[in-house]
């Protein structure tokens, strides 16, 4: 223990001791918080590379087994329909993300720049559709889709997702457009560009990061979605990855090594996108109520 007085702040001799104790407590707290966040992921990954024979050992091994197997990451594509499900999810998510971003961008720009009647109601509708429990929309939509034959198809699911994602895309993009000063567009109009010319030369280039973030976020929501997917699509061949994943459990003996391997594969793109977007999301998801 060093007892040298730290003259800088005029502190007494003793606080050094309590400061070290405080530092240690903070460090311990940080470690615990990290463990809470990360341990389940660690456990997912460790399980995914465990040889199936050692899955049901007790007590469970905390560290990766000495004879870890990565082969599950290959065999899972042969043993299960994971490849098909991933491909289905990619198609649905790409389709909805493109459509939702496009429709949302036009609407968001209008909300941000034009004044028209019903603006207030539209903004409430935007918020409300993001807040409603999905099941309230899913059930009547299911009835309507069954009447017009859109059930059990990936295009049908893509259309259904627009109900969830167009409002999300619109709100996110509106906060982006609001951040682009109107004066820039006015300057361009005065410099001799038309409205449409201004949109393509000034607004669009400046909102590209916003469009990219919105597109990625929509993609991830569609990637993650489970309720609509399991209600609207019954044939396993048309399942998305979340329905496919969920189908693993519920069998008599759940093949946890395979489940966790698939889970890791499904998590990776979502996690990467989230880490990139987190700053925008806080602002966007709180309807601009909180600056991220």
């Amino acid at each position: 223990m060093r007892n040298a007085p730290s003259a800088r702040h005029g502190e007494a001799f003793l606080p050094n001791l309590s400061r070290i104790a405080g530092r240690l407590a903070l460090a311990a707290l940080i470690l615990i918080l990290c463990a809470i966040a990360v341990f389940p992921f660690y456990w997912m990954f460790v399980t995914s590379i465990r040889p199936s024979g050692q899955l049901f050992a007790y007590p469970p091994e905390m560290l990766p087994s000495a004879n870890s197997v990565f082969s599950t990451y290959v065999t899972i594509f042969q043993d299960t329909a994971l490849g098909t499900w991933l491909w289905n999810s990619i198609r649905v998510a790409l389709g909805t993300a493109i459509l939702a971003s496009f429709i949302g961008a036009m609407m968001a720009y209008s909300l941000s720049r034009f004044r028209f009647q019903g603006r207030g109601f539209t903004e409430y509708l935007l918020l409300a559709t993001q807040m409603f429990p999905g099941i309230l929309l899913a059930m009547p939509m299911y009835v309507l889709f069954s009447k017009i034959g859109l059930l059990n198809s990936l295009p049908g699911l893509t259309v259904a997702y627009l109900a969830l994602l167009v409002p999300v895309a619109t709100s996110l993009l509106k906060t982006f457009f609001d951040g682009i000063p109107v004066a820039l567009e006015e300057a361009s109009l005065i410099d001799g560009a038309s409205r449409i010319g201004t949109f393509f030369r000034i607004t669009l280039p400046l909102s590209l990061p916003g469009l990219a973030s919105t597109f990625l976020f929509c993609f991830i929501i569609a990637w993650d979605e489970y309720l609509f997917a399991q209600m609207f699509v019954r044939q396993p061949g048309n399942w998305t990855v979340s329905v496919g994943l969920a189908s693993f459990s519920g069998e008599y003996v759940t093949p946890w090594d395979q489940v966790m391997t698939a889970a890791t594969i499904v998590t990776l793109p979502a996690a990467i996108v989230f880490l990139f977007l987190q700053r925008y999301l806080v602002h966007g998801l709180t309807a601009g109520g909180v600056k991220g």
């Binding site: 918080l33 990290c34 966040a37 997912m44 489940v259 998590t267």
Partner: peptide, 25 residues
Amino acid sequence: LIILPWAVPHVVAALIWQWMYNPNY
């Protein structure tokens, strides 16, 4: 690191915790 739980798909989160809650293993 602390953002990770938010980023994980819901189905995956459910599966991980189902496995962690397993009564025997």
